[in-house]
């Protein structure tokens, strides 16, 4: 069973003079249980609309969505029980203390009264908010509020966690801690879907991604496969002495020389054997997700 199965989801919004804009256009994606899946796309690509539909707070015009087999549109309550969602905006009851917020939030997801204290202690420890337990939310810093938003979603350890740009506007240290937490939650068995603007984040965390632009999925699959597809298929190397005889097929590209790859290991060995101590550097240049992202979204 798929953790998430989105099939042909379309969502349009009315704009002026009766016309409609298409936010999601026949989007399909499948996420296996236990994976970390990234949803990437520029601003206005349709990511948040899709997240809202998956979260059960927005209805699609067409298409079907299931979370662990529960239909999000027709079995909304059952589907929501399995999900934890960290919205993009920091919104919480500012007059409540951190503990109160987590206590009521856990209750609203069916955690019995007697079990809440233990779960709250655990999640406060996970997010390093123990000393803020009795602090009102309005007195927390922006980073702490962001962590509180994550705590609200994971306090009851949902099977499926959705993070809508969880590291947006946070400092580097907190971003790293969020990544660690995401990995830890994933190791505990949580399936995770997150959207991000930070390509590096997707590269580091995700096994699979979907790139969305203008409401459509323009690329999806394993990160490594996508990188391979877009990589320059060459062995790139630099030499100390440029006046040497070259292997067949080697072409100069500025200070670098490129040998087209037919079989990576064999070609790398040939270059090393041929140039020996004259080699200054050698690499197989894999395309970064950022390069792929820019290339695809500019098309």
């Amino acid at each position: 069973m798929k953790a998430l199965d989105v099939s042909d989801v379309t969502k349009t919004f009315k704009v002026k003079q009766g016309s409609r804009i298409i936010a999601n256009d026949k989007i399909s994606l499948k996420i296996d249980e236990g994976k970390i899946y990234g949803l990437l796309g520029p601003n206005g690509a349709g990511k948040s609309t899709l997240i809202n539909i998956i979260s059960g707070i927005m209805l699609p015009d067409h298409g079907t969505l299931t979370v662990f087999g529960k239909n999000i549109v027709t079995q909304t309550v059952e589907a929501k029980k399995m999900m934890g969602v960290v919205p993009q905006e920091i919104v919480t009851e500012l007059a409540f203390t951190v503990q109160e917020i987590l206590h009521y939030n856990a209750g609203m997801y069916g955690v019995p009264f007697g079990e809440r204290a233990k779960l709250i202690t655990q999640v406060l420890s996970d997010l390093e908010l123990e000393d803020k337990r009795n602090e009102r939310a309005r007195n927390l810093s922006g980073g702490m509020k962001r962590r509180l938003m994550i705590a609200k979603a994971i306090v009851r350890r949902p099977r499926f966690l959705i993070l809508d740009e969880p590291t947006s506007g946070v400092d580097v240290a907190l971003r790293q801690k969020t990544w660690e937490l995401v990995r830890r939650m994933n190791k505990e068995g949580m399936t995770i879907l997150f959207t991000t603007h930070y390509i590096e984040e997707a590269e580091r965390l995700c096994e699979e991604i979907s790139l969305i632009n203008h409401g459509r999925v323009i690329k999806e699959g394993r990160v490594s496969d996508i990188q391979r597809e877009f990589s320059e298929n060459v062995v790139a190397f630099e030499l100390f002495d440029l006046n040497v005889a070259h292997l067949a097929g080697v072409a100069a590209d500025g200070k670098e020389f490129h040998l087209p790859i037919t079989e990576l290991d064999k070609d790398m060995s040939s270059v090393i054997r041929h140039y020996g101590s004259n080699l200054k550097s050698i690499k197989n240049e894999a395309a970064s997700l950022e390069q792929i992202f820019l290339k695809l979204t500019s098309q």
């Binding site: 979260s55 909304t76 309550v77 905006e89 919104v91 009851e93």
Partner: peptide, 10 residues
Amino acid sequence: GTIVDIQLAP
């Protein structure tokens, strides 16, 4: 925006 807490709850 805290209405989202109710919208997301099962």
